[in-house]
């Protein structure tokens, strides 16, 4: 049986307390919310923290406020999001992203904050200690070479969070709290394209809440490519959001690709192509072509990289057609194995 290494456990009762423990030794302390990412990594010895700070007992992290937009505590579970009719109605992209994460059990445990902080993934990295020893480890952990592209100066582990692309498309912001600072950043600025330093969150900071602006006429969607109907991380995802004028013309648009780089990639040109015109087949095809250029998948997930890149066109098309109002349930059932409607 896989076993955790030994660690010191500290149950925090407040954000301040957690931040204080974290401040003692940020480099070898880890935060534990749902545990669905950290504990497998610890069992595989990808991370061996000396101290684990349990966030479960902090009431503020589980809170949700509806007001001018929506504020979610980072400890809100993914199941909570999936079951919230308000989120489903007003932020369908977030709902669809959350509903396609892992499995029902893992959504019962996993949190929205945890999904945003999800470690980047790679088939050379998400392996047991013994396996990684057999390849003499890799750049991301204990090794010198990125085996995905051996000449790469940086780690190419892939961003695999489902909710981040959706939240970027919705222009959400997160709050980062440390023992002596509080700051807010756009979700899009939370990430950088480096498999190791994929997040700007410092080791002493806690992601405490996510704020979504009012939905305000925005339509949103999330499409996820993976082999099976559950369990799997995305190997490509497309989050989209548009605002339409009464005649159907696009006034504003956002397209974000997930799982094609070490951070979610915004396809800005593709989105701006759509502005000022209706979501015609031609406009969608043009945007899909431009988004395709942004997608640079690497050979470190399931499926071949050429095929994943190729499919990005189709998935952007699906997303934009759904935003246009097409009935996409057939495509959903085929690709997601569920209607997601």
């Amino acid at each position: 049986m896989m076993r955790l290494p030994e660690f010191r456990y500290c149950a925090a009762r407040s954000i301040e307390e957690a931040a204080a423990v974290l401040a003692e030794s940020p480099a070898d302390t880890m935060l534990l919310a749902g545990g669905t990412d950290v504990l497998p990594n610890m069992k595989r010895r990808q991370q061996v923290p000396r101290t684990v700070v349990g966030l479960r007992g902090i009431p503020a992290l589980g809170a949700q406020h509806n007001g001018n937009g929506l504020v979610l505590g980072a400890g809100v579970t993914l199941t909570h999001i999936v079951r919230d009719p308000n989120i489903r109605a007003h932020y369908p992209g977030l709902w669809q992203a959350a509903a396609q994460i892992a499995t029902p059990h893992l959504r019962n445990m996993g949190t929205i904050g945890g999904n945003l902080c999800l470690d980047t993934r790679c088939t050379y990295y998400d392996q047991n200690y013994e396996w990684r020893k057999a390849i003499d480890f890799c750049l991301k952990k204990d090794g010198a070479v990125c085996w995905v592209a051996t000449s790469s100066p940086r780690c190419l582990a892939v961003s695999s969070t489902d909710t981040a692309p959706a939240l970027i498309a919705l222009r959400a912001r997160v709050r980062l709290v440390s023992a002596n600072s509080v700051r807010e950043v756009d979700v899009t600025d939370l990430y950088q394209n480096d498999g190791i330093q994929y997040s700007v969150r410092r080791a002493d900071e806690i992601l405490t809440e996510i704020a979504l602006p009012p939905s305000d006429g925005w339509r949103s969607t999330y499409w996820k490519l993976r082999r099976r109907g559950s369990f799997d991380f995305p190997v490509l995802s497309v989050a989209g959001a548009v605002r339409l004028d009464p005649s159907g013309g696009v006034t504003d648009a956002r397209i974000v690709l997930g799982a094609v780089a070490s951070r979610p990639m915004e396809a800005r040109e593709a989105a701006s192509t759509l502005v000022g015109r209706p979501l015609s087949d031609e406009a969608i095809a043009e945007a899909a072509e431009q988004a395709f250029a942004v997608a640079k998948p690497m050979d470190n997930t399931d499926f071949t990289l050429h095929w994943r890149k190729r499919v990005s066109r189709a998935f952007v098309t699906y997303a934009l057609r759904e935003l246009r109002g097409d009935d996409m349930r057939d495509e959903r059932v085929k690709t997601a194995r569920q209607a997601m409607g």
């Binding site: 669905t36 059990h105 893992l106 445990m109």
Partner: peptide
């Protein structure tokens, strides 16, 4: 339902 293997 939760996974007991990932619950401390």
């Amino acid at each position: 339902p939760v996974l007991s293997c990932l619950a401390l």
